[in-house]
Simulated assay, not measured.
Amino acid sequence: MGRSKRERIVTLTKTRKHVIGKKRKQDLLEAIRNDIDQYEHIYVFSTENMRNAKLKQLRATWNDSRFFFGRKKIAQVALGRSPEEEYSEGLGKLSKRLVGNVGLLFTNRAHKDVISFFREYCEDEFARSGFVATEDVHLTKGPLEGFAPNQEQNLRQVELPVGLKKGVITLLQDFTVCSKGDVLTPERAKALEFLHVRMAKFRVKLLCHYRKSDASFEELAA
């Protein structure tokens, strides 16, 4: 007789993983709600040319505040997805903005100081594949400074026409890495990184703001 569809064998490993996963989600939800209790201001932000290293630097600079990036569904539940579910009055509006590549910033810094900081904040970063070049990068035939002989193969892999001459990496002909408006391929993006050319800008854009003391919500950017 075949096993009933209602019967299912569940290994202890799967059960344990489920319990651990559920606990982690609950811990994260509680951590977000602790942040709501601790901080006066909450912002939803998006990033341009996101880099984990840059976000880590921001966290160090803003060590009196907290950045939350990822697990948006848990964040939505923590805030409350409707007026009936809101952890605090008005948070449902903030929750609805947690769509796409966005995060949360919790802080007690003055609102005007937060706005001023991120209006000016901009960090140069290496462009990635798919980025539209913002300038022409042209190399002239001859020795390439700053490269060790053992990097020749790496440079060839990113399509640079190089060779070794008397132990010095040399560009064998004039070469255009990119022209303004070109969409960078993975090879050209890596070539620019080898050449220490940073075209991208890492920015943080504040989208909306919630103030706990009066449960006010305001849009900051379209």
Rank of each mutant, 00 (worst) to 15 (best):
I32S: 00
C208A: 12
V137P: 10
F69D: 10
E219P: 05
N154E: 06
L58S: 11
T140P: 09
K17T: 13
S216N: 00
V102S: 08
L155T: 04
G181V: 04
L58T: 11
V177C: 08
R156C: 00
A31P: 06
T185A: 04
R51Q: 08
K14C: 11
K201G: 07
A215L: 09
E219F: 14
F118S: 01
S116M: 05
D64W: 04
N154W: 04
K165Q: 15
E159H: 11
T176M: 08
L160V: 08
L206I: 10
N34C: 08
L164H: 01
I36R: 02
L160R: 02
L171G: 00
Q26R: 15
E84Q: 14
R97T: 04
P186H: 03
I32H: 00
G103I: 02
Y39V: 03
R109M: 08
S46K: 07
G80S: 05
A75K: 04
R156M: 05
L98E: 03
I169K: 00
L91Q: 07
N63D: 12
T47S: 00
K212H: 08
A31F: 13
V10K: 12
F147T: 02
F69N: 09
V19T: 14
R97Q: 09
V158A: 01
R3T: 15
S179D: 03
L207P: 08
K14G: 14
L79P: 04
G130C: 02
T15P: 03
G130E: 00
N63A: 07
E187C: 06
G167N: 00
C208K: 02
L91C: 04
Q153L: 07
F147M: 03
F106V: 02
